[in-house]
Amino acid sequence: MGEIIDSGGGGGKGKHQKKRAKKHGAHIDMTPMVDLGFLLLTFFVLTSQFSKPKTMEINMPVKPTDTTNTTKIDDETALTLLLTEKTEKIYYYYGKFKSETSILKTTDYSKEGIRKVFMKRNETVIKQVKELKEKYSKGEIADTTYKRMSMGFKGDKKAVFVIVKADEKAKYKNVIDVLDELNVADVGKYALVDISPAEKELIKVSTL
């Protein structure tokens, strides 16, 4: 290991031998170094993490100082989601909550499920934002205009307003899934609210 092999020349030990010029340079056995190199390579390949953690920004409403100015839930645009411990099922209903008339429906967390519900409900906004995106990518509008206008479309009076209500047993993953789908479907107006006892009752009596 690690010895220097003198392949050329043969040295000048014997007095009777003529000193000859070395034909080749001295060879160093590089095997250990290469071994170590590959070992390090393997280590760094296996330990490096390429995907940096991603993040979602959430802005909760500032605590209202007076209650007169609260947002009213509109029958037309409201969509309430109820998340429970059932990790495959989302309960939802449209409009204001009335224990007699609110009809509970169910869907799941897949892209065929909740995303379809949002997409259908938010069709106009998605179309508007898509057109805007095309204009932006062509360079027709400026960065600030794009942001302002897309915010305007998403915050439009007629745009869907989603209320997410998760009960005590719901899992964090499900809440994140819903928030993610909201972003995918360009829903700009949503809120995280506590579930009411009446709504729990509604889930309980429904056979869904």
Partner: peptide, 10 residues
């Protein structure tokens, strides 16, 4: 009132 939720890449 403003914070980040850390997630993985989908």
């Amino acid at each position: 009132n403003s914070f980040n939720l850390i997630t993985d890449m989908e």
